[in-house]
Design a protein around this nucleic acid. Sequence first.
DNA 1: CGTGTTTGCCTAAGTGGTTTAGGTGGATGC
DNA 2: GCATCCACCTAAACCACTTAGGCAAACACG
Lengths: 192, 192
Amino acid sequence: MARVGLTTERLVRAGAELADEVGFEQVTVSELARRFEVKVASLYSHVKSSQDLKTRIALFALEELADRAADAIAGRAGKDALVAFADVYRDYGREHPGRAAAARMRLDPETAAASAGVRHAQMTRAILRGYDLTEPDATHAVRLLGSVFHGYASLEVAGGFSHSAPDSQETWTRILDALDALLRNWPSEPTL
Amino acid sequence: MARVGLTTERLVRAGAELADEVGFEQVTVSELARRFEVKVASLYSHVKSSQDLKTRIALFALEELADRAADAIAGRAGKDALVAFADVYRDYGREHPGRAAAARMRLDPETAAASAGVRHAQMTRAILRGYDLTEPDATHAVRLLGSVFHGYASLEVAGGFSHSAPDSQETWTRILDALDALLRNWPSEPTL
DNA sequence: CGTGTTTGCCTAAGTGGTTTAGGTGGATGC
DNA sequence: GCATCCACCTAAACCACTTAGGCAAACACG
């Protein structure tokens, strides 16, 4: 009865890799058990349910992504920081599509509040220190950046921009140029 | 053996309503059969599979959304058109969260190419006629707008902006102001 | 108005993922 | 060396998906 050494930690990591291989939606307790060469029921001592497993993968991805983002913006400011930060999101989505999808998973409010999601929001706000935005404009801008990063990654992985000119990298660069210009010249009052 | 009068059309419509009630992920052939008071296997004369059903719901939502968008931009131009267009997306996401999620579902390339998705892209491009954008900037802008609409709707339905000031409506208005300003003053060359 | 054909819905059965209850034996600690 | 723990097991129930094949209601036509 060879003990494989299952732990919640190992299951979540393997689940994240599985997500990158087959897609987050296709992550299944059964497939994970197969990979560890263990019976399915054995996993239930380590995760409460299939849903619990997916939530843990999402939290793991959010942490990993936040760590990368923190590294990227350290010592940078202004457009430099914006681009480095944004590139972390885009690269993560391309490198780890399953984990990125997990990070976009809907979490219930308490779980979300205790997740690395708040670090993401804080870092986005930190980026804006390089621009002259006062509240509530800073909050609006945080939400805009979140929407763009989130949305672009989704559309890109869905193949929305592939196989059509100009290529996705070019668009990404120009979108960041545009966002930088927008943040430097944020319209303080509604333009009439 | 009372015939209920199942058709693919009716199943897809009921599936869309089910999606709005319980979430697109939770749409299931079994639940649909339950609602029609019919055995599960009976649905398989009308849809090929669970996946087929979901794809049809996605296509239905894309059509419906494109119709609404077309109505909204008729007779409008410039910021007026941009705001009307964008509001259609946001309102649809709030009014029909399940269908909106369906519309964001990943489709395989041929299906996507034959879907109303291309109408969405065309309409977005039409909006930009009110601004002075030449290629390839227009394409970049189309992708930016798509990312923002897509991303904002996802974050909003995930509860990202709820219960925190300023409210989501205010942010949405200000984001559209910002996008309008950006499109009127799109940075043609990378700012150095 | 019968009769044959279509077809809408059925039963039956197999596959596979999820989850719980309870058992067994290998590792650990005294 | 014994008791304990716990990692992993077997067994079994539940539910969603899917296919194959049957029956009878609806329809088309002479």
